[in-house]
Amino acid sequence: MSDILDKLIDNAQIWQASRQRQALNPGIESTGFPALDAYLPGGGWPRGAMIECLVATPGIGELRLMLPALQRMTQAGQTVFWIDAPHIPYAPALARADVDIRHLVTIRTQTREDQLWTLENCLRSPVTGLAMIWLDSAKRSDIRRIQLAAEAGDSLCILFRHSRYADQQSPAALRLLLNPGEDSGQLCPDILKRRGGWPVSGLQLAIPAITTRPPEPASNVIRGPWPRTH
């Protein structure tokens, strides 16, 4: 190879696809799903960058995807913020999943301005491990502001948006479109955008199943649902 190319490679000025799967660097937080880690640059959620998760409807396993990170961070004493979550994060279920709920803080804001201000402040603090924000905005300036805030800190910043924004351009470092799997123990994320890689679609992740096995219809148990009798 020519001297010039060698020099560029030595100076680490060229990105090589073959070197993508490197050892975990400190700016990476493992997702807890090896199948997903394999496709993410560095092998996990990037810290200090905006991660965008696009979800059409709640209840397809989007929180179960975050559970390993939640467990690890709360057990390490880092605070996890839920900013304007669409529903109530249910404490009994979180406690059951070994999340230390003392380190969870839910925040409700009234205006968009407050919402972004809150996120910026959370991300700038060293105590924040993960900040999750649910935003229903198509404004590019808002998204850009979140990205800048995420880059200013060293924590995970996950933006949940509706999947109708999938076609919109986004400055996020990582964009995932979450699709429901064939059963409740499966999630099919499409990587719409990742650093140093092409989009990937059709991934299949085994997420913690809700029930270990389907209930067997026992002959002596009458199974619902029952029609309305009166």
Binding site: R108, T118, S125, V127
Partner: peptide, 27 residues
């Protein structure tokens, strides 16, 4: 140090958003 930074952040958020905007979860 960590605890101090945490309280500092929560106080800031409370001062702007109001005291009932922030919650911990408990069983």
């Amino acid at each position: 140090h960590q605890e101090e930074a945490r309280q500092h952040l929560l106080s800031r958020l409370q001062a702007r958003l109001g005291e009932d905007a922030l919650h911990h979860l408990a069983l």
